[in-house]
Design a protein around this nucleic acid. Structure first.
Length: 994
RNA sequence: GGGCGCGUAGCUCAGCGGUAGAGCACUACGUUGACAUCGUAGUGGUCACAGGUUCGAUCCCUGUCGCGCCCACCA
């Protein structure tokens, strides 16, 4: 059946993908071949960065996955034992958010109404129904992952439905328990970033600092007992600029609502202005007068005397800096807010939050506080910067004062998911003591066990790890790995305890319930405890002699029973490399594929994920998780903006695949994957590469029409060709194969793409196909030429397959019966020995001659249909040889009808080639003026080039210092140029005579 | 405030010590038996600017000017 005129991507892609899957082509180890020495195939493994279970394929994934697929297909064809491990991340916050929204939309009970177990069931239901759409989308892209090994970061968790079995939960729990037992995980009451929308702690990486328009208010904190002091301000020279008696200390703040929790006012020890009042008390100027707290004025290095008033209110429970100051100085912390970021209404804070502010949202409270202070005259007043020439009462020259409020750009923390302002909150959380496990992760990159490419990212990696902070791993969510810790009362002397509400509580850490029971038995004996944990309530220890019932609230302390919190999603995805391979079981896959070969990822998750995988794998199994990390750039829109839904500039890869085909999308991303630079995607470019696929397709049709595929015998080795043209293209194939391998070896994906583009289009289609036309008509050489065309096109398909899998596989199947699918075809290894340098030289000469003639014809406006004779004016032996052997194709491609020898006839165009001169007699055809212009222009260019060469060669220092071959090359070029210039001049003289 | 990257043809980008490249766009010509998703030939560049190193700099160094990104607790 003859080939269709065009490749029908939409039809073929699904069919080909199904064929690969049915053939098990993606399975780990598929197409693995022993090495030439008989030893087992070398493993090559890549872990897919697990997309969120809520995710759909966006351009960043398409890029990321294309690069991985290229590496995987390339290695698979080279006979490596290849694994591309797919999977999904349970994505705690994101998923819980999606499911809660679903519940709201379908008017079902809320999360809290239905309770934890029921809600988690709902999430699993949702996952089964609509999670992981990205898998189907990846198939459209052509990603050749081993789907039979699909992993999930929550597999095997309690409550997981059938089909979600797996080791991941066990692995996560085991790691938590092990790290806890090694003292690398601890619980503590710390100030953490709190997301008031999701009501959970988040890590500092999940906080985005954004500049917003804010205000800084200046308020007076009156000194206790109406005391006053002399306030003196001096300039840099020590001259007094202000001297007045004050009965207050001025404070600047951007967050007046936190004043209620102030514990002190701090000034710098060297600040002479406040020296008279250090140690005295001042009053927080908010709330009913009789309830106002007095706080001390202290000194600390933290305040900057040049900023604001130089005095800082210290609110340890609501600011990270202040917390440090408070800790240093023994200042108490006063938590003011509840989990939603509203001012607390509960009894514990009675004396902190006055009645009128209780229950107010933090921002409403801010407005109220500002209004109240201002009304009371406790705002610092400044002259109105825009004085009125006349005031309301008609007073001329009156300059009113106004409350001192600076409009100010301030950095404000936002939750990266919730987009609400993050609140520093004092809560009990679990932390990984990263400082203790970070060093191996730093060393591994320093000593090259893991290589990060491009190199510049190593710096970023080092900087972050060297300044690493404790990692808060507990989240107040329900969807995730519940922390395997139970709390109970303690018998004296144990160290794993903490204080809460006057109770000393022991933390039990266990991988599962039976292990916990064992622990408790060791601890209390057989009779002393109850154990009861049904997934809903955890009251097992209530009767152990405690008085009262402890109620857990995030940030508020302790409960009896299992910790309700779950682990940060990144804690589990941090175990992705070993977890997907079956750890803690010592599976054969783990032995074979770990450490993995390459991680391909965007720089945006170096901290979130890459660094943590390094730390965790090293801490848990003592090995690096991957040998190479290839960090690629971001995909942006054509204007260079980051694609985002809110900007509406998102290009959907699936739309592009629909329109241009997956191969075109893949090739575009590959061609633009230059290291270290963001790529701006334009559909024009994709269309161009779609055309490229079409070009290859039509070259194959050309072959078909010329019976190349009739009885074609696919061979790995090139045919033993005798024709120069055939020998030449075989050499070119060898060249491009080497280029592609070298490029991929170095992760220079764009180099591989452009080498292939230049070969397939620029060499094979532009020249070789044309060269073969006369040969195919010639009985003697037609056979070998057909074989060569077939072989060369096979090489195109093979070498392009990693980047353009669909069109190449389709051609592979259409053109000849094949022993294997292309996806499993053997990647060539032939080398430079296939380059026939004589053929190479000859074809380069032929191409140059044809181009010269074409150029001359075009510029003289010789009609396309008009064939011309050519005159060989002078030509050296190799030129004559080349002409003789290629006369047919030169005449065809340059549209020449005959050759004569002799002097250039009058009114002819001179064609200079390496080793000689031709003339195109064009008397009566050419425009003499135009030809003069053409020759002068060529001469001018030549003279300019030669000027440079002469200058250099006349410089004795150049001749002395430059490498021999550079000097030699310059000499040769100058000689060639001079010969050519002489000819041009002669021709010009002739024209002038005519 | 630190750190990183980028300014090369009209556009999007490669390149990187030895005479400036690609694709797209543009211009002219073309119904040549693979391909108009095409062909042939062209136009188009002080490689941001200023110094320095070098026989030689788009490339290395320093500074300046523009852009972009990452990290950072200035109340």
């Amino acid at each position: 059946m003859p080939m269709e005129k065009n490749f029908d991507a939409a039809e073929a892609e699904a069919r080909l993908y199904a064929m690969w899957e049915a053939a098990g082509a993606f399975k780990a180890g598929a197409n693995a071949r022993p090495k030439p020495d008989g030893s087992p195939a070398e493993p090559f493994s890549i872990m897919l960065p697990p997309p969120n279970v809520t995710g759909t394929l966006h351009m960043g994934h398409a890029f990321n996955h294309t690069l991985m697929d290229i590496l995987i297909r390339w290695h698979r064809m080279r006979g490596f034992d290849t694994l591309w491990q797919p999977g999904l991340d349970h994505a705690g916050i994101a998923t819980q958010m999606v499911v809660e929204r679903e519940l709201a939309l379908s008017q079902q009970p809320t999360r809290r109404e239905m309770g934890r177990a029921a809600f988690v069931d709902k999430v699993w239901e949702w996952k089964a129904k609509s999670g992981g759409q990205i898998v189907e989308q990846d198939k459209r892209l052509g990603a050749s992952m081993d789907w039979s090994r699909m992993a999930f970061t929550m597999s095997g968790a309690p409550g997981a439905p059938a089909g979600e079995e797996g080791n991941f939960h066990d692995a996560v729990i085991k790691v938590f328990v092990d790290l806890y037992n090694k003292g690398l995980i601890y619980r503590g009451k710390r100030l953490v970033n709190w997301d008031p929308h999701f009501e959970t702690a988040i890590s500092n990486l999940e906080v985005e600092q954004t500049e917003v328009n804010g205000h800084m208010w200046h308020f007076k904190y009156p000194l206790a007992g109406g005391e006053s002091y002399e306030y003196v301000e001096r300039d840099a020279d020590g001259q007094v600029t202000l001297r007045e008696v004050r009965d207050y200390i001025a404070i600047a703040t951007t967050r007046p609502e936190t004043m209620l929790g102030d514990g002190a006012v701090a000034v710098h020890p060297s600040d002479a202005r406040y020296a008279p009042i250090v140690g005295k008390l001042c009053e927080i100027p908010v709330g009913p007068k009789h309830q106002r707290r007095l706080i001390p004025i202290i000194t600390d290095e933290y305040p900057d005397p040049l900023f604001g008033s130089g005095a800082v209110k210290i609110t340890g429970a609501h600011d990270f800096n202040d917390c440090d100051v408070a800790m240093r100085n023994g200042i108490p912390l006063f938590p003011l807010m509840d989990t939603k970021g509203a001012m607390r209404a509960d009894a514990a804070t009675d004396n902190m939050v006055p009645q009128k502010y209780r229950g107010l949202d933090r921002f409403d409270c801010r407005r109220a506080v500002v209004a109240d202070i201002t009304a009371e005259g406790l705002a610092v007043m400044i002259p109105n910067p825009a004085p009125m020439p006349e005031d309301d009462a008609g007073r001329v020259g009156f300059q009113p004062t106004i409350p001192y409020v600076e409009a100010k750009k301030i950095m404000q923390p936002f939750g990266d998911r919730s987009k609400v302002v993050i609140e520093p909150m004092l809560t009990d959380q679990w932390f990984v003591d990263t400082a203790k496990i970070v060093q191996p992760a730093i060393d591994a990159v320093r000593n090259g066990d893991t290589v990060i490419l491009p190199e510049q990212h190593e710096k970023v990696y080092f900087h972050w790890l060297e300044n690493i902070e404790p990692w808060c791993i507990s989240r107040q969510l329900w969807w995730g790995h519940q922390i395997p810790v139970w709390y109970g009362p303690i018998k004296g002397g144990d160290t794993d305890t903490f204080e809460a509400f006057g109770l000393t509580v022991k933390v039990f850490c266990a991988a599962d319930e039976s292990q916990l029971i064992d622990q408790l038995k060791t601890y209390y004996g057989d009779e002393d405890f109850y154990f009861f944990a049904d997934g809903e309530s955890y009251r097992g220890f209530r009767d152990l002699g405690l008085s009262g019932e402890l109620v857990f609230e995030p940030g508020e302390g302790v409960h009896i029973g299992r910790d309700p919190d779950v682990l940060d999603t990144w804690f589990s995805s941090g175990l992705w490399p070993i977890g997907t391979l079956g750890w803690p079981e010592q599976t054969p896959e783990l032995k074979k594929y770990f450490p993995t070969s390459t991680l391909v990822t965007g720089f945006d998750i170096i901290f979130f994920w890459v660094a943590r995988m390094m730390m965790m794998q090293l801490a848990v199994v003592g090995q690096v998780p991957f040998k190479t990390v290839y960090v690629h750039a971001l995909v942006r829109d054509e204007k260079g903006k980051k694609m985002s839904k809110s900007l509406g500039n998102v290009l959907d890869p699936l739309d592009l695949i629909d329109e241009y085909g997956a191969d075109a999308v893949r090739f575009t991303l590959t061609a633009m994957a230059a290291m270290g630079r963001d790529l701006k995607l334009s559909t024009q470019r994709i269309a161009g590469y779609r055309n490229f696929a079409t070009k290859l397709w039509s070259a194959s049709r050309f072959a078909e029409m010329n019976l190349v595929w009739e009885g074609y015998q696919p061979q790995a080795a090139p045919p033993a060709a005798t024709q120069t043209v055939n020998r030449w293209i075989i050499g070119e194939a060898a060249r491009v194969r080497a280029e592609v391998d070298a490029a991929l070896e170095a992760y220079r994906f764009n180099d591989a793409a452009s080498a292939l583009y230049a070969f397939v289009w620029g060499k094979v289609c532009d020249w070789y196909v044309e060269f073969t036309k006369p040969l195919l008509a010639d009985g003697a050489s037609a056979g070998e030429t057909r074989a060569t065309i077939g072989w060369v096109l096979d090489q195109c398909m093979i070498l392009l397959h990693p980047i353009m899998p669909f069109v190449t596989e389709e051609l592979w199947g259409l053109t000849a019966p094949r022993a294997k699918l292309l996806i499993h075809a053997d990647w060539p290894t032939y080398g430079a020995d296939m380059i026939d340098s004589a053929a190479d030289r000859e074809m380069t000469w032929v191409i140059a001659l044809i181009e010269e003639v074409r150029s001359a014809r075009a510029q003289m406006h010789v009609p396309v249909g008009l064939k011309l004779p050519i005159v060989q004016v002078d030509l050296n032996a190799s030129g004559r040889d080349a002409w003789t052997r290629n006369a047919a194709l030169i005449q065809r491609l340059a549209r020449i009808d005959s050759l004569t020898e002799g002097a250039a006839p009058k009114g002819s165009i001179l064609i200079a080639v390496d080793g000689g001169t031709f003339a195109l007699p064009l008397e009566g055809v050419i425009d003499i003026g135009a030809e003069k212009t053409r020759l002068s222009k060529t001469l001018e260019k030549l003279e300019k080039d030669m000027g440079g060469l002469r200058g250099r060669l006349n410089n004795p220092k150049f001749v002395a210092a430059a490498p021999e071959e550079v000097v030699e090359e310059n000499r040769e070029n100058l000689a060639l140029g001079e010969a050519e210039a002489a000819k041009l001049k002669r021709a010009l003289a002739q024209l002038a005579a005519a």
